[in-house]
């Protein structure tokens, strides 16, 4: 299998605090990877490093065999890395569909091409349909419910037509039925060829979703393998499950 993302000896410090130390991670094309670990273990920091929201101190990140370690976040987005945020960050002054227009304009269709505005609109509508968000197309993003916000967050990321999608707790705070809905969407996205890294606290969801699980504790990877193996690892059980 071809490697899509390669993280090598990555270290990230905030002041005197080491958030990530010597992290190595390969993600294969088409893979569904679950990233788990207790609070403060560095999951979100790792995502921030991959998406370019924070700059790394040491190590290297390569995407499709090209080094992206020092690229700005918007350039990584253009290269095909999309992400969602743990706390949804909609463009709240815009309508739902306008939210999608941002990545569609800035990444997919280019900036000056206004002539195919209708085509772009159609693509956004189609995407909202896939996300089961059609009925809220013109609603202001500031007025969405929790689950709708989660869907919008996902839709906006997918609108960038990414090859790698990184979801930071896309299901936190949702009811069981809603969790399943989001999981179904993620599965569909993966089936359409998008590689997905999922950070999640809901273990059931991670287990159902992931082909492989990586467990972080205190900024280090302590286990990496098939879901059942990782869960059986005593170190993981001690660090994560508290047993």
């Amino acid at each position: 299998m071809t490697t899509l993302l390669r993280v090598e000896t990555l270290t990230k410090r905030f002041g005197g605090f080491t958030a990530l130390s010597d992290v190595n991670l390969n993600v294969a094309k088409g893979e569904r990877l679950g990233l788990i670990g207790p609070n403060g273990s560095g999951k979100t920091t790792l995502i921030n490093c991959i998406s370019g929201v924070v700059q790394i101190d040491q190590g290297a990140i390569a995407f499709e065999n090209k080094d992206i370690s020092t690229l700005a976040a918007y350039k990584r987005a253009k290269k095909g890395i999309a992400r969602t945020f743990q706390i949804p960050r909609p463009f709240h002054s815009m309508s739902v569909i306008e939210n999608l227009m941002v990545p569609l304009e800035y990444i997919v269709h280019g900036l000056v091409d206004v002539s195919n505005r209708n085509a772009v609109h159609a693509e956004a509508s189609e995407l909202l349909h896939r996300m089961r968000l059609s009925d809220r197309t013109n609603a202001p993003a500031g007025q969405l419910s929790q689950v709708e916000l989660r869907k919008l967050e996902l839709a906006r990321a997918v609108a960038a037509r990414p090859r790698l999608l990184v979801c930071d707790e896309a299901m936190a705070g949702l009811a069981t039925k809603e969790v399943h809905e989001i999981l179904d969407i993620l599965m569909e996205l993966n089936a359409s060829g998008i590689t997905i890294i999922m950070v999640e606290h809901i273990l059931q969801a991670v287990m159902r979703f992931s082909q492989r699980i990586v467990c972080l504790t205190a900024g280090r990877i302590i286990s990496d393998g098939a879901p059942a193996d990782v869960m059986a690892n005593p170190e993981v059980r001690r660090a994560y499950l508290g047993s």
Partner: peptide, 24 residues
């Protein structure tokens, strides 16, 4: 235009705008 959409996006949520390809 795209300029205004980008500016609005970064005003509403800067890091999300950046991750949506906006050179903030």
């Amino acid at each position: 235009s795209w300029v205004g959409r980008g500016l609005h996006a970064l005003r509403d949520a800067e890091s999300a705008a950046e991750c949506s390809g906006v050179p903030t």
